[in-house]
Design a protein around this nucleic acid. Structure first.
Lengths: 164, 164
DNA sequence: TCGAGATACGAAGCATACTTCGTATTTTAC
DNA sequence: GTAAAATACGAAGTATGCTTCGTATCTCGA
């Protein structure tokens, strides 16, 4: 434990500055990325999460909400909310699956595909800008470390909770 | 641009996997940290944000809400909400400042200080656990890189928006 | 001293992000 | 073939995290 003595000789905890706590720094990084994303893509009225959803749909072509939630590692209820907002703006179609009437099959509308194509470059730039203050080598190392941490936890969260 | 030709010779964008995008990985890291924090500190019914606030108050002794918001790099309105919740549980006292009746001076109650002392070890463990899958050397490098990114953006967000 | 600007809040509204509970539907085990 | 288990959703509630707008208060310069 990091302790120190003060003038009266009492043992006390030395405060651990917020700016050195991993969790605090991660939250700040998230804030910074969202801000950069909004700057780059604000004109399209799209959020990072919505961009993730559109990207996932572009790959899947068609998928139910639970699958999409797992794809983007997000809570199912939150995913539904975002998909509803995208559907309200006609970027996504949400139709009941005939073969499993519990499920809502989602897919990009032509407008959604067009939007995705239009924002692609800006969105990628925002992602890259987030690590712009690191050297090329550091950026690669940073992404690699993030991937390892994420991979180490990928079997215990909602996305792939198969061992719980 | 990363492009590829398909069988028909059309140029198309190769999808950039979510799992390689900095912003996506940062969001996942944040999710992971919050989950680890809840596991470690769940019994105290405290969130990472509330822990940050208690920590900041322990250092400041007394501070108005705007100062606290800047300390923890958080929107003022959000900070107010968290402080209200802490005050409702009697961990924080929010009183109108006699010398500036616009301001609410906040400080830890004895119960708040006691809670902070009780949580400290678990909270620190959660912060460390977030980077547990990296080597000691990597953890230091990772924190250093995060600090550099955050520092590079610290003069353009709500916390210290003096150049806008 | 008085009025303009700055400051500290609060209220309202939207978008994440999570939990728990309930419902409809499908699958599976017997 | 049917009852139990699993699955896909939806609704409701809470906490973050942000913006915009409005109000009260303070400060400082003319």
């Amino acid at each position: 434990m990091r302790k120190a003595k003060n003038r009266r000789g009492e043992t006390r905890h030395r405060p651990w500055p917020l700016s050195q706590r991993p969790g605090f720094l991660i939250r700040r990084l998230h804030q910074i990325h969202v801000a950069l994303f909004q700057e780059a893509c604000g004109e399209f009225e799209i959020t990072p999460l919505q961009y993730s959803l559109l990207s996932a749909l572009a790959v899947r072509k068609t998928a139910d909400q639970t699958t999409l939630a797992a794809d983007i590692a997000l809570d199912r209820t939150t995913t539904t909310g975002a998909l509803k907002r995208l559907a309200a703006r006609n970027f996504v179609e949400r139709a009941v699956d005939d073969e499993d009437r519990r499920a809502r099959l989602c897919k990009l509308t032509p407008a959604g595909a067009a939007l995705l194509a239009k924002i692609e470059a800006s969105a990628r730039a925002a992602h890259r800008a987030t690590l712009d203050n690191l050297s090329e080598r550091e950026q690669a190392a940073f992404v690699d470390m993030m991937q390892r941490i994420v991979a180490a936890h990928s079997n215990r969260d909602s996305a792939t909770a198969i061992f719980d």
